[in-house]
């Protein structure tokens, strides 16, 4: 038996992955599924409770607060982030734009910062009385915006603050995908559309969007999944708490609190599997609505 036999070699190369995947992904996933049917206080103390964790989850008000907050965050992040990133990409894709590369880097660079750093930075920016955000809004509104505005300690403003920080971090990141996609659109299509009398909006809708469709769907799906996994940002920004009136409580934060603060790994696992189901459903819905699940025409 020769390892470089084309029939055997792929399996040789796949073996390390298969072993690592089985040990570190598949087995823990299976174990967490089993755990979700128990109440635990560490691995030493487990009681099998059947589906009680899932039934409790359905009537757990904190879980639904976390679901509501997470969906709100995902919705507003997507609705603002995707158009902003695309607009920015189109702007920075223009030939002859002054300092084009520097601007591209400037918009992308927030993503290079760690979430911890960004959280510390925005804690200061959002501070009442001295924070730059309030100072800026105070100046822009001619003094109407109160310098005392509490972004992180007022339940109504926590979510807008989280969306803002998220935009600052990820608009440039999504922009890079769109830039790459825009550069792949055949310029002749724009020429042809122009010759046919298409205006800027018609060219955008009929040439640009179809040309970047796959990347657009990719960015939407990835951003959605990322949004559902939101944890570090509110956790750090709100000083290891769910924020006032739990306005920053997300599903993953709730999972973390139950699993690693309360020690109830069983309930945390049930939350995790429910999150998986939610993300799967939302992503499938997005792909269905975007037509990505249709088979490519062979013609």
């Amino acid at each position: 038996m020769k390892l470089n036999d084309p029939k055997i070699a792929p399996y040789v190369f796949l073996t390390p992955f298969a072993v690592i995947f089985s040990v570190f992904i598949a087995w823990p996933l299976f174990r967490s599924l089993l755990l979700s049917f128990t109440i635990t206080s560490g691995p030493g103390a487990q009681v099998f409770v059947g589906t009680a964790n899932y039934r409790f989850l359905l009537q757990d008000p904190d879980f639904w607060i976390a679901v509501r907050n997470t969906f709100t965050f995902v919705f507003f992040s997507l609705v603002i982030q995707v158009p902003l990133s695309l607009g920015l990409a189109m702007f920075l894709n223009r030939k002859g734009l002054w300092m084009r590369n520097a601007l591209r880097f400037a918009f992308f660079s927030p993503h290079l910062m760690g979430l911890v750093f960004a959280s510390i930075l925005f804690t200061l920016l959002f501070a009442p009385r001295f924070g730059l955000v309030n100072e800026g809004l105070h100046a822009v509104t001619g003094g109407h915006w109160s310098m005392d505005t509490r972004w992180l300690s007022d339940a109504r403003r926590v979510m807008p603050a989280l969306v803002m920080v998220n935009l600052w971090l990820y608009v440039g990141y999504s922009m890079i995908y769109f830039l790459a996609a825009l550069q792949g659109v055949d310029p002749q299509l724009y020429e042809a559309a122009r010759v046919d009398g298409a205006g800027p909006f018609a060219r955008f809708w009929n040439v640009t969007i179809p040309g970047i469709r796959h990347v657009l769907i990719f960015v939407v799906v990835i951003s959605t999944i990322g949004g559902f996994q939101l944890f570090e940002l509110p956790w750090l920004l709100l000083n290891n708490t769910p924020g006032p009136e739990k306005s920053g409580l997300t599903i993953v934060m709730y999972l973390y609190q139950n699993g690693f603060v309360s020690g109830d790994l069983g309930y945390a696992s049930a939350i995790g599997w429910t999150l998986l189901l939610l993300v799967f459903c939302v992503s499938a819905l997005q792909l269905k609505l975007s037509g990505s699940l249709r088979k490519e025409s062979m013609a």
């Binding site: 109440i39 206080s41 103390a45 009681v47 409770v49 009680a52 039934r55 409790f56 009537q59």
Partner: peptide, 17 residues
């Protein structure tokens, strides 16, 4: 109420609703 009786290993007192 959701917590089991750890010493007895009994099911939790939690009941839906």
């Amino acid at each position: 109420r959701r917590m089991p009786d750890w010493e007895a290993g009994a099911l939790p007192a939690f009941e839906e609703g």
